[in-house]
Simulated scan of single mutants.
Amino acid sequence: MAGSNLKAGGRLVSVVIPCYYSELTIEKVVTMTRDVLVSKGYRYEFVLVNDGSTDGTFDRIRSLCKDNPSIIGVNFAKNFGQHSAIIAGLRYVHGDYVMLMDDDMQTHPSQCGLLLDEIEKGEHDVVFAQYPQHKEALWRRLGSDFTLWTMRVLTGRPKGIEASNFLVMKRFVSDEMIKYDGPYVYIQGLMFRTTHNMVNVTVKHFEREVGTSGYTLRTLVRLWSTVLNFSMVPLRLASIAGAVLGLLGLVWAVLLVVQKLLDPSIQTGWSSLMVTIILCSGIIILFLGLIGEYLGRLTMTVSKTPQYVLKEVIEDGGDEDA
């Protein structure tokens, strides 16, 4: 890839930024991040992925690419989600280190150096930003805490590690992640099955400068459900629940028979029978739905449902049709 900054000394850092309605912030994010990288002696490249924004976001990306050949612009045909945008960007990186960050100035460029200083020690493969104070709504924070807990249980995330989308990883991790071609992408899940050699670094969480988060409750639930692509734990829980219920049913049946033998006048309990039927039926339907979700995702994978559809790619300051 061409670019005057690539002739300088030092390691090359590839910065991947998924962009969603960020025409007012993306130029500032790129400029400030570039200044931090240059001041620390790094060479740089940026991969900016427009995730279906219909405002002037890609026009701004196009302008940045024209001014600096070290910036690559990727334009999606429609919105595919942040994690699909990230994995698309990872397929264009060339760096020794790969940095992921957001486009809204909450993952602030001034904090990049802290992550890079830690990865330079060579002891870890991935360095996640960790926020002592979050600048987000309470419901988002509670939802994030629940997601982090379930993801640790279901995906085998190392205990004590707080995952985020602000991180730096070594190139081999990125190279392994982009081998995944399934339609449901979960970036942290791909990392956890690649390496457990991770660490957190505390950084400051800034306020969003413009607009509001593109995540709604619906999109957060959809993102959480992507864990089904990376874990067999829910199916194993279904098997365990079925075995436990079967055992409890057997014990209950024996107790009822003994009770009836000891006291023939006892009437069979209609209420307890209805409660048992409703409880067991509910659990059966729940796990049938879970199995159906797995089968549906398998069908989508077999039918080659795309992770994303490229509309346009800009490299070396020039346009290239996808």
Rank of each mutant, 00 (worst) to 15 (best):
M177H: 01
L235P: 03
A163M: 05
A163I: 06
G143E: 07
F206R: 01
V185H: 00
S225Y: 08
V199P: 02
T219C: 10
A253M: 12
V233A: 06
Q188P: 00
V153L: 15
M232L: 13
G156Q: 05
Y186K: 07
V227I: 14
T226I: 04
V227S: 03
V251C: 13
D175M: 09
F206D: 03
T195P: 06
T226P: 00
I161H: 03
V227R: 01
G189Y: 00
R222C: 10
R171T: 05
L167W: 02
M177L: 12
I187W: 01
W224E: 14
D181T: 14
Y215V: 14
M232N: 14
N229R: 07
Y215Q: 13
T150V: 14
A163R: 00
R222Y: 09
V244P: 04
V203W: 00
A163Q: 02
D175I: 09
K179E: 13
G143A: 14
F230R: 00
L228F: 09
M232I: 13
G182R: 01
K170P: 07
S225I: 07
T195H: 09
S213H: 08
G182H: 03
V168W: 00
T155E: 05
K179C: 09
S239C: 09
L237I: 15
N200F: 03
S144L: 12
R171W: 05
L235R: 06
R171P: 02
R152Q: 13
L154V: 11
R218C: 11
N229K: 06
L245Q: 04
G242K: 04
F166D: 03
V251D: 10
I161Q: 03
L190T: 01
A241E: 06
F206H: 09
S144N: 15
T194M: 07
T216L: 11
L167V: 08
R171G: 04
M177F: 04
T216Q: 11
R208A: 10
F206K: 00
D181C: 10
K170A: 07
S164A: 12
R152K: 15
F206Y: 15
H196C: 12
K204V: 10
V251S: 11
M191Q: 08
Y215C: 12
G189H: 00
Y186C: 10
D181E: 14
L154Y: 11
S213F: 06
G182Q: 02
E209L: 14
S174W: 01
